[in-house]
Amino acid sequence: MNKVTTSTLIIFVLIAGWVFYLTNIKKDDSLTVRYYSISELASESNDIKKIKVGGYIKPNSIDISENDQLEASFFVYQNNDSVKVTYYGIRPDLFKDDAEVVVSGSYANNLISATELQTKCASRYEGDLKNIEKI
């Protein structure tokens, strides 16, 4: 190996090292968020600072404040477990009963205070045939 290749490699290794340092991300709260399944939360009694949860909105659980339409609470369920979520802000258009959502925020007293609420975007419309008129 000649000089140029060697030094280039060294530079690359240094940069890669820096990247690894940064990507030692498990320890860095500002970069990562742990994903919990709802059944895991059901048995979790401690508070969690940062959390990400995916599931479906429990039918008839959406409660929108009388005073301020931006204030909402609802339950997210998966199989037989569910968790209550509060959220203040504009809700996505696809937000409704049984919609698949991903919420991020903090968890305390069996309640998620969401700072971010995403519904699965409709990039595909995988409708089943339930809307089809049958004879």
């Binding site: 990247v19 940064l22 990507t23 991300i25 498990k26 500002s30 970069l31 990562t32 968020v33 742990r34 994903y35 990400k52």
Partner: peptide, 27 residues
Amino acid sequence: WGTLFPILSEAWDGNKIYVGASYFNQL
């Protein structure tokens, strides 16, 4: 690395950890 991190971290110790947009931006 960031995209596969949830899979890798789950395989490592069972915790599924997502990295946010801040990770990608920072790097």
